[in-house]
Amino acid sequence: MKFAGEVTAVLGRRLLVLRSDAGQLPPLYSEVADAESRTVGKIVDLYGSVARPYLTVLCNDGVLAGVGDSLYVVPGSKPDLPKKRRQVSGYRGEGDSRYPKTGGSIWKKKSRN
Score class of each variant (00 low, 15 high):
Leu46Val: 11
Ser30Gln: 14
Arg92Ile: 03
Gly68Met: 03
Asp34Ile: 07
Gly41Pro: 04
Leu28Arg: 13
Gly90Tyr: 07
Arg14Ile: 05
Lys2Asn: 15
Ser89Met: 05
Lys83Asp: 11
Asp34Ser: 03
Lys2Ser: 14
Leu46Met: 14
Asp21Gln: 14
Lys108Asp: 12
Pro82Leu: 03
Ser49Leu: 09
Val50Trp: 05
Trp107Thr: 15
Arg38Val: 14
Asn60Tyr: 12
Gln24Ser: 14
Ser105His: 12
Pro82Cys: 03
Phe3His: 15
Pro26Trp: 00
Thr39His: 14
Gly66Met: 02
Pro75Asp: 15
Lys110Glu: 15
Arg52Ser: 04
Leu55Cys: 03
Gly5Met: 01
Thr8Ile: 15
Gly62Pro: 06
Leu71Phe: 05
Glu94His: 10
Arg38Ala: 15
Ala33Asp: 10
Arg13Gly: 01
Pro79Asn: 00
Arg86Tyr: 02
Lys109Phe: 04
Arg52His: 04
Arg92Trp: 01
Arg38Cys: 13
Leu15Cys: 07
Ser49Arg: 12
Leu46Phe: 00
Gly68Tyr: 01
Thr39Met: 09
Asn60Trp: 09
Glu6Arg: 09
Ser77Pro: 03
Ala22Gly: 06
Trp107Leu: 15
Arg13Ile: 03
Val17Leu: 14
Asn60Thr: 11
Ser77Gly: 01
Gly12Tyr: 10
Pro100His: 06
Ser111Phe: 08
Ser30Pro: 02
Thr39Asp: 14
Asp80Tyr: 04
Ala22Trp: 09
Lys110Gly: 14
Leu64Ser: 15
Arg14Glu: 08
Val17Met: 14
Leu16Gly: 02
Val73Ala: 05
Val74Cys: 14
Val67Arg: 11
Ser37Val: 13
Arg85Gly: 12
Arg85Ile: 06
Leu55Phe: 08
